[in-house]
Amino acid sequence: MSESKFNPRSIILLMIIIFVSIIRVAAPLSSDFKEIANFSAVGAIALFGGAYFNNNVKAFAFPMLVLVLSDIFIAKISGYGFFYAGWYWTYIAIVAMVAVGKLMMKKVNVGTFMASTFIGVFLHWILSDIGPMYAPSIYPATLAGYGQCLINAIPFELNFLYGTVAYGAVMFGAFEALKAKYPYLSLAKAA
């Protein structure tokens, strides 16, 4: 039998990612943006892509595309440059989170979701905070400077953790509910 070109599972997964991405793009428009900085859906999108897309291109490309497009939009709205110092460390951290989703969430449940979230956010913290070491006069490029950067990043990383849990609960919960109602979405080969 030949595979159908119409793939409802992939389309629904992508629609969930797009819906949650709109919230990330809208966040800088909020007057409380500084207080909610890093309370974003990017970590949840990375874990979601890793958990549900069997195709590695889709699993890694969709979260990275969301990150690139939302970073461009946020840079335009906020006035910050897109290529901020060490930006690629943030992208490496998101790739690591997709890998965590692929490796740890072969079976999606609350336990694997929470474990993947904590490990993914921890990797995001230690990898993305290498970036500020490359910004002039923020932190010295030493182990002590990196340690200070990690300490100063804790409030932002906690927001990232909270955002990953909240958005992840919505995304994973929505798709699992859809799978329960429409069993054909459970087909592993469909994504």
Score class of each variant (00 low, 15 high):
residue 5 K to R: 14
residue 5 K to L: 14
residue 5 K to D: 08
residue 6 F to T: 13
residue 6 F to A: 10
residue 6 F to N: 11
residue 9 R to C: 06
residue 10 S to F: 04
residue 10 S to C: 12
residue 12 I to Y: 11
residue 13 L to H: 04
residue 13 L to P: 02
residue 19 F to L: 15
residue 20 V to H: 03
residue 21 S to L: 04
residue 21 S to D: 04
residue 23 I to W: 13
residue 23 I to M: 10
residue 26 A to G: 03
residue 26 A to I: 13
residue 27 A to N: 08
residue 30 S to I: 01
residue 31 S to E: 14
residue 31 S to G: 13
residue 32 D to K: 13
residue 33 F to T: 05
residue 34 K to F: 14
residue 35 E to H: 15
residue 37 A to M: 11
residue 39 F to L: 13
residue 39 F to C: 01
residue 44 A to W: 05
residue 47 L to M: 00
residue 49 G to S: 07
residue 51 A to D: 09
residue 51 A to V: 04
residue 54 N to V: 08
residue 54 N to K: 12
residue 56 N to K: 14
residue 59 A to G: 10
residue 62 F to T: 11
residue 62 F to H: 01
residue 64 M to Q: 12
residue 64 M to I: 14
residue 67 L to A: 09
residue 68 V to P: 02
residue 70 S to T: 15
residue 71 D to V: 09
residue 72 I to V: 15
residue 74 I to E: 00
residue 76 K to N: 11
residue 77 I to H: 03
residue 77 I to T: 11
residue 78 S to K: 10
residue 78 S to P: 03
residue 80 Y to A: 14
residue 84 Y to C: 07
residue 85 A to R: 10
residue 88 Y to A: 12
residue 90 T to I: 02
residue 91 Y to E: 06
residue 91 Y to I: 04
residue 91 Y to K: 04
residue 92 I to D: 00
residue 95 V to G: 09
residue 97 M to Q: 14
residue 98 V to Q: 00
residue 98 V to D: 01
residue 101 G to E: 05
residue 101 G to F: 07
residue 102 K to M: 06
residue 102 K to S: 03
residue 104 M to G: 10
residue 105 M to L: 10
residue 108 V to L: 05
residue 108 V to P: 00
residue 108 V to E: 01
residue 110 V to P: 00
residue 111 G to K: 15
residue 114 M to V: 15
residue 116 S to R: 05
residue 116 S to C: 02
residue 116 S to F: 03
residue 117 T to W: 12
residue 117 T to D: 02
residue 120 G to S: 03
residue 122 F to N: 10
residue 123 L to F: 11
residue 124 H to M: 15
residue 125 W to E: 10
residue 125 W to T: 00
residue 126 I to R: 08
residue 127 L to R: 01
residue 130 I to A: 09
residue 130 I to N: 01
residue 131 G to Q: 05
residue 131 G to M: 06
residue 133 M to D: 01
residue 133 M to I: 13
residue 135 A to S: 07
residue 139 Y to R: 04
residue 142 T to P: 06
residue 143 L to D: 04
residue 144 A to S: 14
residue 144 A to R: 08
residue 145 G to L: 08
residue 146 Y to D: 06
residue 147 G to W: 08
residue 149 C to S: 15
residue 149 C to G: 13
residue 151 I to F: 11
residue 151 I to V: 13
residue 153 A to G: 12
residue 153 A to M: 01
residue 154 I to W: 06
residue 155 P to F: 05
residue 156 F to G: 09
residue 157 E to L: 01
residue 158 L to I: 15
residue 159 N to L: 04
residue 160 F to V: 01
residue 160 F to R: 02
residue 164 T to A: 09
residue 164 T to P: 12
residue 165 V to T: 01
residue 167 Y to G: 02
residue 168 G to I: 00
residue 173 G to I: 06
residue 178 L to E: 06
residue 178 L to K: 05
residue 184 Y to E: 14
residue 185 L to M: 11
residue 186 S to N: 15
residue 188 A to Y: 13
residue 188 A to R: 13
residue 190 A to L: 07
residue 191 A to C: 02
